[in-house]
């Protein structure tokens, strides 16, 4: 069985069935998901969708909690502080 991946800011990251974006990223050693607008890091904190600290931009879904969203093969996921984000999304 080939390993399935998501694209994190363009880089392939492997995920397992049942992985959320947060669990796939943290297994890959990625704990910081960019910066929030308050300059604090975006990262997993509560793990159950309450704290809103782990928001990322997910292709086909939009801004969502990394801890609640299951991975989908070849899905592009970007940090909200990634400035390449909206240029493509809004023209």
């Amino acid at each position: 069985m080939s390993v399935q991946t998501i694209l994190w800011n363009g880089t392939p990251i492997a995920f397992l069935p049942g992985d959320t974006i947060a669990s796939a990223l943290s297994r890959a050693g990625i704990t910081e998901f960019g910066l929030r607008q308050t300059a604090l890091p975006a990262a997993i904190f509560c793990g159950i969708g309450q704290c809103q600290n782990c928001l990322v931009s997910i292709e086909g879904i939009g801004v969502a909690e990394a801890c609640l969203t299951l991975c989908d093969a070849e899905q592009s996921v970007r940090s909200l502080s990634d400035h390449r984000l909206t240029e493509s999304a809004h023209d």
């Binding site: 607008q37 502080s81 400035h83 984000l85 240029e87």
Partner: peptide, 8 residues
């Protein structure tokens, strides 16, 4: 609304 993405 929220603060939106930094790039917007």
């Amino acid at each position: 609304s929220d603060r939106g993405p930094a790039s917007e």
